[in-house]
């Protein structure tokens, strides 16, 4: 396993790819796994704390959970890019093919956040959303940085 947060049961992890970086979230529900995958995405950008000063709402629609994960991460990447923000709080609700998400974050402060990369897009490489035998969900893919 790559770098991950330090909680006993890791909520997210990074996994290696030759050129880019994989992000994976875990959770008791698929929604929680999606939220944690977005945390892994933010952690690829900054190791600093992100304060939730502003909340943005996004919606995605896709035929299955894997396409939906890519859409979700791409929505986060898009909001980061057009708003010049980083996000630290995520809330996801999935109903059928539709995802509603809330992103809490703040404008990028280059000195404080020292952003390491600017994600270009989520890919279908190593894309997997699955429920393990223990009932826990994982959701991850490679992100082009």
């Amino acid at each position: 396993m790559a770098s991950a947060n330090s909680m006993a049961a890791a909520a997210w992890e990074h996994f290696p790819h030759d050129a880019d970086l994989g992000v994976r979230g875990f959770g008791e529900t698929v929604e929680a796994a999606f939220e944690n995958a977005a945390r892994a995405l933010t952690a690829a950008v900054t190791e600093a704390d992100v304060v939730s000063r502003e909340t943005i709402e996004v919606t995605c629609d896709a035929p299955d959970l894997e396409y939906l994960l890519v859409d979700w991460l791409n929505a986060v990447i898009y909001e980061m890019a057009v708003r010049g923000m980083v996000f630290g709080r995520f809330s996801v609700r999935i109903r059928g093919s539709r995802l509603t998400g809330q992103l809490g974050g703040e404008p990028v402060d280059v000195a404080r956040h020292a952003p390491a990369c600017e994600p270009k897009g989520a890919t279908y490489t190593a894309l997997r959303v699955a429920q393990g035998a223990d009932g826990r969900w994982s959701a991850g893919c490679v992100v082009d940085v």
Binding site: F15, D18, V145
Partner: peptide, 8 residues
């Protein structure tokens, strides 16, 4: 061409 991942 990269010889190792960003993570490594």
């Amino acid at each position: 061409g990269r010889a190792m991942s960003r993570h490594a």
